[in-house]
């Protein structure tokens, strides 16, 4: 669940979210995440925000994330646009050394209906280094219907141990 509020005159905004994950295996576990952010439109299409996210996990312990982020969108002529976002987070970990996360993302819109983007992130937590990168695309057939797809690659390396994941996502949006 998520909600946001924006004060139209000043551009200040706040949002809050809550997420619960239940894992049903040979043992049951639950993860609860909650947090929010406060920020401001410092220009018509530019925002900066400060966020906090708390994760309470039966298996991995309780962790907190403090994030400073910005996002900017701009027209570059002929109904073409681009956006770009940058975020840096401090990761307060209960069961391993604290770490940090740096995220970059940008999307190019050759028309108002189509967006193609790239994103990447690097995290260092405890003894672990994680690179995440991928591509996204979304096409609006019209104002009511959109299709999107994305690919994300995760490479995680620790002391003599590595994990590699490929995530393929397909989705649709309907607006009424």
């Amino acid at each position: 669940m998520r909600g946001n509020y924006i004060h139209q005159e000043t551009g200040w905004f706040a949002d809050a979210q809550y997420l619960q994950t239940d894992l049903d295996t040979s043992f049951d576990s639950k993860t609860v995440q909650y947090g929010g952010s406060v920020g401001k439109y410092f220009a018509p299409t530019s925002i900066v925000s400060l966020g906090f996210m708390r994760t309470e996990d039966d298996i991995n312990g309780d962790n907190s994330r403090y994030t400073l982020s910005n996002f900017h969108a701009q027209e570059i002529g002929d109904d073409r646009f681009f956006d770009a976002g940058f975020a840096v987070s401090y990761l307060d970990q209960e069961r391993e050394d604290d770490g940090y996360l740096v995220e970059l993302a940008s999307t190019y819109y050759p028309t108002k209906k189509l967006g193609v983007g790239l994103r990447g992130a690097y995290a260092h937590v405890g003894e672990k280094d994680e690179f995440t990168y991928g591509a996204t695309s979304e096409y609006f057939v019209n104002e009511n219907l959109a299709f999107n797809a994305s690919y994300t690659r995760l490479d995680s390396k620790a002391d003599g141990f590595s994990i590699a994941s490929n995530v393929f996502q397909f989705g649709t949006k309907v607006r009424f």
């Binding site: 590595s162 994990i163 994941s165 393929f168 989705g171 949006k173 009424f176």
Partner: peptide, 21 residues
């Protein structure tokens, strides 16, 4: 096409993960 207040979404994700050891 006007007065849109509601957005619904549906997505499907597949993940393939390999471990080194």
């Amino acid at each position: 096409a006007s007065a849109q207040n509601l957005e619904t979404n549906l997505s499907l994700a597949f993940t393939d993960t390999q471990f080194s050891k």
